[in-house]
């Protein structure tokens, strides 16, 4: 139990620092940035206290907002995906989720990919529509969210593969 708490605290701080100090300076093709800090929400233990989880996600987004001067954009996106996560989990993992036995490390690749992509896309769509905050730029919002989703999803998958510790 303690182990899980420490891992999540570490993940929380390291992801925020990596996000604001490195990833936000990438600006691939001028506007595409990966938002890998969502990984905290993606990998949070499935058996959890939902109140704590939603509140932690809010804090995560708020901290990123502090660094990026973006108002409450990241916080709003994080809270929404944290609230919607059980739905997405149910959709992408189906029966295994019902039995509460999903382990991200040994889940099937396709299932993990759908889970990551859906959650990240929702996060990015909210993020960019709130950031631009103008319905007349709908196409720009869509373009930004789709390209950033691809970028973030690839990076998230790579990071989970690299940092997964297989118990032998």
């Amino acid at each position: 139990m303690n182990n899980i708490v420490t891992i999540n605290i570490l993940r929380f701080t390291i992801l925020i620092l990596v996000q604001v100090l490195i990833l936000n300076n990438i600006n691939f093709l001028g506007y595409i940035n990966p938002y890998v800090y969502v990984l905290f929400i993606l990998l949070y233990p499935i058996k959890n206290n939902r109140l704590v989880f939603i509140f932690l996600s809010f804090l995560l987004g708020l901290f990123v907002d502090f660094f990026l001067d973006s108002g409450g954009v990241n916080a709003a996106a994080c809270v929404t995906v944290a609230y919607m996560r059980p739905l997405i989990l149910k959709f992408s993992f189906g029966m295994t989720y019902e039995h509460q036995t999903v382990k991200f490390n040994n889940a099937e690749f396709v299932q993990r990919l759908t889970y990551f992509t859906i959650l990240i896309f929702i996060h990015h769509a909210i993020l960019f529509s709130l950031e631009i905050f103008n319905i007349s730029y709908f196409l720009l919002i869509l373009k930004k969210s789709i390209f950033s989703t691809v970028f973030t999803a690839i990076l998230c998958l790579l990071m989970t593969v690299i940092f997964s510790h297989k118990r032998t």
Binding site: I54, A75, A76
Partner: peptide, 14 residues
């Protein structure tokens, strides 16, 4: 809780 936090962040955004 979700609604409160979401409204709070919307408030910051606006």
């Amino acid at each position: 809780l979700f609604l409160t936090l979401f409204c709070l962040s919307l408030f910051f955004t606006i």
